[in-house]
Every structure is written in C-alpha cells, then in structure tokens.
Design a protein around this nucleic acid. Structure first.
Lengths: 239, 239
DNA sequence: ACCTGAACACCGTTCAAGT
DNA sequence: ACCTGAACACCGTTCAAGT
C-alpha cells in the first residue's frame, strides 16, 4: 500500500486557503457564474465577483472569454442545454410543441433572471442550435411550410422568453419588497384610478391579475399554435 | 424706454458658459435624456452625462427622480405618449388593433434601443394607462370577454416590444460592425453547419432570414389577432 | 432651504510588470 | 509564455458642507 494513499492527519491539513479548488477553465468559470446567478440574481454577476469566487483576479477570465457578453451568451447556452429536446416523431405535434414550450419556460424559470440575457434571437451556441434543429424537424414533419416554420420558431421563442422575463422580474421585485404581493398592489392601483377617465381599466382591475401564470401562458401558446395548425398538413399527425 | 431693455454690447457678452439654458426641471431632464438616447443609444445614457449636458452635477437629478430606473420609466412613458391612441369606435376592430400595433412598433423604433427598458408589463405612467384604456375599450367593444381582453393586451404588448427590441439590437449591432449586413452573416453561419447533425437548419438557412421585418411582424400579429377573433362577437364590427 | 462637489463603493477592460 | 496586480475610465448614489 503506497504511503501516498494514507490521508494526511486532519490537524495539519489546510496549508493554503481552499480557494483554487479548480484549476480554472472555461467550464469552471461558467459553473461558478451560474452558481452566482442562481444564488444572487443576474445583477449581482460581475467579472470581479466570479473571479473572486475562483480565487483569482478579474483579468484572468479574459483568457477564456473575450468579454462579459460572451460569458453571458455561453452561460445562457449552457442553460438551454438543460431543456429536453422535442421529438420529431411525436404522435401529436401540437402537444409536443406545447410540451417543449412549457419545458423551456420551466428551465429558464429555474435560473432566476438569467433569461434576461436572451434578447436577440438566432443564438449561435451549440445547445441552442441543437434545440432549433429539433424544433424545426418537428414543425416540418407536421407539414408546415418552411417559411412558416422559421417564423413560428422565432415567434415561439419570443413568447417563451418574454413570459419568463416578465415572471422573473416580478419575482425579483417581490424578493426585494416583503410587503403585500406585487400583483395585489397592481390591482389596487388600477382600481383606484379615476373612473371617469379610465372606466375600462377600473372595471378590469380584478380581471387583469386573474389567472395563474400558467393559464396566461397556456392562452398565449394556444393562440399561436392553433394559428400555426392552419398551415399544417390536415391529418394533424406526423408522417 | 428702460435701460434694461438695451441689449448688452456683444463684446462683453458671455460672462459664463451658456450651459444652464433651462432652469432644470423634470421636463428638462427628460428631454435631455431622450435626446441623448436618440443620439447615442441607451447604453450611453448615464446620470452623469445627462447632468453634464444640463450644466450641473449628477446629484442634482435626484431632486426630480428617485433613481435612474425611475427616470427611465418616465422616459419610456413619454415615448408611449407619442403613439396615437386606437379608436374604440373604429368600424373594423381587427384592422384598428393591427394599425395600433404597427403604430406602437414604429414609435419604439424611432428611439433607438430605448424600448429595451420596457420589461415588466403593467406600466403605471399616465400615457401608458391612457393607451391601455383605449385598447381595452376597443377590444371590449368587439365583444371579447373581459378575461381574454386583459390577457390579449398583455400578449400584444409582449409581441410588439419583443419585436422592437430584437430589431433595435440588430440595428445597434449593425451600427458597430460596418462589415457585411448582419443577417447575411447569420445565413452563412447556419449554411456552414455540419449537414448531418443539422439538416433542417442548413436547409432553412436562406429561409430563416427571408421576409422583411414587416412581413414577420405581420405574421405574428395575424396569428394572434385571428386567434383573438374567435372570441369576438360574430358580427366582426364594433357596436 | 436648496443645491452640489466630492466621496464611496462599485463596474468592465487593459496592460505593464512580474513569474 | 503565461498570469495578474494595479491602473484606467467610467458607473449610480449619498451626504456633508457650502450658499
């Protein structure tokens, strides 16, 4: 039995601070950044803080990422990789599209407000490309014309991201103010408007905040997918 | 004729720099801020720069705005005020909704990437409220149920803002790189992907960037409004 | 009472000087 | 050749000290 296998006695253990646990790599940087976002939110993510967490200076990160934007882009792609890919051979394409949309939303929601970095479409990360490829396969398999497929994919990601962003902002807002639930405040504000100038807003104040987030998202998806279905092959199923 | 009315001889005129032309007010701050955004984009807007433009220090702005976010919120509301209100008594509600959506998009587009600040819905500025009121009057007039009206209004602003944000990002990107048009680069990138792993993306590379922004926006709106129409009073016109 | 210069606690990014 | 401390040029916000 080699002596090296014997554990060092604990009382003489940590010679140095346990800072540099990982030898620094793009992977290590991304993991650390994601952990920080999950813990403190996107606004708290700075190059300096990520570096500090890794036991080095901010300048060292620029060996792996050209700038902060590139780091964020790759961070988002990493998260996109957590979304299960839709199956092109699903028996019911509409149900599969809807499932994929909900899955995407759930993944984005599980990483605080990171989704806010998803702005310009047509992302170029590997995971994003794989996802786009799978979705296109599903839509084309349903007999939807190419041009409509491309537009629909854009539309869908727009709706998903917008919904996730809105939700995340409400949550971050609610996290800061521990007073009344945010939506109740909105309702009360609208209800208190002068009824002669804003009759419809006052009348709809309770309705405006009604319906869980899921219901609203469902509504948006149905509007879009049902519209999409008019372009699909009549059968309604994949080949 | 009082002596004070005689203009000072020009050769002894400007004692001080002509900086403080306006006596500083929320209005003056907003005008200046909007001018800066229109000229240099949202990222170039800082409290310090706005103050400098007004010939004072950044601290002075905090007499009129609690913080930068509040300034941005009011700035956006000011721009929303430029959108013509939809008319509730329009003969064809679908056409009127579509016109309103295009008008909103055009106004947002005319102020660089300011639209990026429009994130959480349910804004509370006066102009935003007036717009929401007018849109609700139009939708309810079409016989659409209250709950659907509320959701649809959210959906519409989501689509408009997302489209304007995407467009503005492409434009800001194109402003920085004077190389090939951005969309052409995207197409070439997609076309160059390995065809065995990404057959659909490669096949659709030309289609993906096809269709002007207007066509795509039109498509998104039609999808939504046609879906909305299934909830409306069958007549299709306002009362 | 009002205004604001200077300070505070941060940023992203660069680069010369070290190893 | 690689890494990084320190510097640069900014931020938003606060507040004491002036008028």
């Amino acid at each position: 039995m080699p002596a090296a296998a014997i554990p060092a006695p604990p009382w003489r253990a940590p010679k140095k601070a346990p800072a540099a646990r990982q030898p620094l790599s793009a992977e290590a940087v991304l993991s650390t950044a994601l952990r920080l976002v999950d813990r403190d939110g996107l606004d708290a993510l700075s190059m300096r803080r990520v570096a500090q967490e890794l036991g080095t200076g901010a300048a060292s990160l620029y060996a792996y990422f050209a700038n902060k934007d590139e780091l964020l882009e790759q961070l988002l792609d990493r998260v996109v990789g957590e979304i299960p890919l839709p199956r092109a051979d699903a028996p019911d394409w509409k149900a599969e599209v809807k499932r994929a949309c909900f899955a995407s939303r759930n993944v984005f929601r599980s990483h605080r407000d990171l989704v806010r970095v998803a702005r310009a479409n047509i992302p170029t990360g590997l995971n994003s490309l794989r996802y786009a490829e799978a979705l296109l396969a599903l839509l084309r398999g349903a007999g939807i014309p190419d041009r409509i497929c491309a537009w629909a994919m854009d539309q869908m990601s727009m709706v998903i991201i917008a919904d996730a962003v809105e939700q995340s902002i409400h949550e971050e807002l609610g996290r800061r103010t521990e007073a009344e639930p945010y939506l109740n405040q909105v309702r009360d504000y609208l209800a208190a408007l002068p009824a002669d100038e804003f009759p419809n807003l006052v009348a709809l104040a309770p309705t405006m905040i009604e319906g869980s987030g899921d219901e609203r998202f469902q509504f948006a998806l149905d509007l879009m997918i049902d519209g999409l279905a008019t372009y699909a092959r009549p059968s309604g199923g994949a080949a």
